[in-house]
Amino acid sequence: MGILSWILFGLVAGAIAKFIMPGKDPGGILLTIVIGVVGGFLGGWLGSMFGGQGVTGFNLMSFVWAVIGSLVLLLIYRLIFNRARA
């Protein structure tokens, strides 16, 4: 996939992750894209570690793994950010 495809895929995965785990986060759309794209890579790695294919292109399982990776990253980001604020 091209870089633009990964960015669009990451944007959607990051937006779904923020929808599933709502809350106040600094950063806005750029942070959502970064969390989504990196979450797609993390989701692909997690998928391959648990016997799946990971993120292999634009299909349903790739989307599910990308959202899972984005949720994990969003949770880690919130834990670090909230600890730094306190």
Score class of each variant (00 low, 15 high):
F63C: 04
D25E: 12
V37I: 13
Q53Y: 06
P26N: 10
S5L: 14
T32K: 13
L8F: 14
F50R: 03
L73F: 04
T32L: 14
G36L: 11
G47Y: 03
G44T: 03
F58R: 07
G51L: 03
L42D: 03
I68L: 06
G47H: 02
V34N: 13
N82Y: 10
W6V: 08
L11R: 09
I29N: 11
N82I: 12
G44P: 05
R83C: 05
I20A: 12
S48N: 09
G23C: 04
Q53T: 03
G40N: 04
A84N: 09
V12R: 02
G44F: 01
I76P: 00
G43R: 06
G28R: 10
A66M: 04
I80F: 07
S48R: 10
G40A: 14
L75Y: 05
F19Y: 15
N59S: 00
G39V: 04
N82S: 10
L31I: 10
I3C: 12
V64N: 00
I3D: 08
D25C: 09
L60E: 00
S5I: 12
V34R: 12
G69N: 07
G36I: 08
S70D: 02
S70M: 02
G44L: 06
I29V: 14
I29S: 13
M21G: 00
I76H: 01
L46K: 05
L74M: 05
F50W: 11
M21H: 06
S70V: 02
V12Y: 01
M1K: 08
L30I: 15
S5P: 06
M21Y: 12
I7V: 15
A17F: 05
G2M: 15
F41N: 13
A84V: 08
L31N: 14
L73V: 07
I20L: 12
V12T: 09
F58I: 15
K18A: 11
V12L: 13
Y77Q: 04
Y77S: 02
G28K: 11
A17P: 13
G39N: 06
V72N: 01
L8Y: 13
L4W: 12
A17E: 03
Y77C: 00
M49F: 15
V12P: 02
F9R: 06
I20D: 00
W6K: 11
P26L: 15
G44E: 04
F9G: 10
V55K: 02
I16C: 00
G47T: 04
G2H: 15
G69R: 01
G57Q: 06
V55T: 08
N82V: 06
V64C: 00
V37A: 13
